[in-house]
């Protein structure tokens, strides 16, 4: 209290602050505002840069293609022209609005040509449509349906049994609806989404920063769904068979054999 005149005494309800107290107060407030600015800057700089998934929120488009409702709802849209080495179809995975999968919406359209409205979500080469409920309508069949089994067989690649460490995420948020749509803070949301039917996905991070995304299936090729809820957003090791269809990777394994890993180790090679 040495620099503070002993006769100065601050009383809050009096209109004016004693001059000495006021001078000190202005310094203190300036200090607090500097602290405020510093805190904001440090906290922004300290955060990870987020990878960009895109959710075209508010942009509803129309799509037409062959609907496969099982094991994971996906719309196959023929690529125009000669595709060369590219798969014959683009695959658009289908989910419902909110934290819901689209199984109930698309079930009756399995293996049928349909037209639907929805909003695109995409990241790292995987594309998803948040479908507008009740917008799906059946269309007259075309040749795609007949050719499909042979196309799928031709484009299928088997990569054998592998041991992979990564994180289970819900595909909808991870691909772009939320940013970040992974890791601990997002865990509850991922649990809610997977519980609501959004297909779970496995994210394997490589040392060079790249990531491999695999759809999680059981040994019979059905989506694992709710069986993985307890392991979401944690380091997990999965031993299973990796197969590729078109551009998509699927990891087939019994969910009972998933193990918690001590930490997410980064894979040296894909």
């Amino acid at each position: 209290m040495n620099e503070y005149k002993p006769d100065e005494f601050y009383i809050g309800y009096l209109p004016h602050t004693p001059s000495g107290v006021g001078r000190r107060l202005r310094m203190i407030v300036t200090g607090l505002l500097v602290l405020t600015v510093l805190t904001a800057v440090v906290l922004v700089l300290g955060q990870q840069r987020l990878r960009t998934g895109i959710f075209e929120f508010g942009d509803v488009r129309t799509f037409e293609g062959l609907m496969l409702a099982r094991p994971i709802p996906v719309l196959l849209v023929a690529r125009p022209g000669i595709t060369g080495k590219l798969p014959v179809h683009s695959r658009y995975f289908i989910v419902a609005p909110g934290k819901h999968g689209a199984d109930d919406l698309v079930g009756v359209f399995h293996y049928r040509q349909v037209k639907l409205k929805g909003t695109l979500v995409y990241r790292d080469g995987i594309t998803m449509i948040e479908v507008v409920p009740d917008s799906i309508e059946a269309m007259p069949s075309n040749e795609t349906r007949a050719q499909l089994p042979s196309i799928v067989a031709r484009e299928r690649r088997l990569h054998g049994e592998q041991v992979l460490t990564g994180e289970i995420v819900d595909s909808k948020c991870y691909l772009g609806v939320m940013s970040p749509g992974e890791a601990k803070p997002h865990r509850d949301c991922a649990v809610r989404c997977i519980s609501g039917g959004v297909p779970p996905m496995f994210v394997v991070r490589h040392q060079n920063g790249e990531r491999t995304l695999l759809w999680l299936m059981d040994r019979d090729g059905a989506s694992v769904g709710n069986a993985v809820l307890d392991l979401v957003a944690e380091p997990v090791e999965i031993t299973g068979e990796v197969r590729q269809e078109g551009d998509e990777l699927f990891l087939r394994s019994d969910p009972k054999t998933y193990r918690r890993a001590p930490q997410i180790s980064q894979h040296k090679e894909r």
Binding site: A40, V44, Q47, R51, F55, S179
Partner: peptide
Amino acid sequence: LFIGLGAWLNPGAT
């Protein structure tokens, strides 16, 4: 500051 600077440095954040 937090939101403005954050959106500028981190365009991927929603």
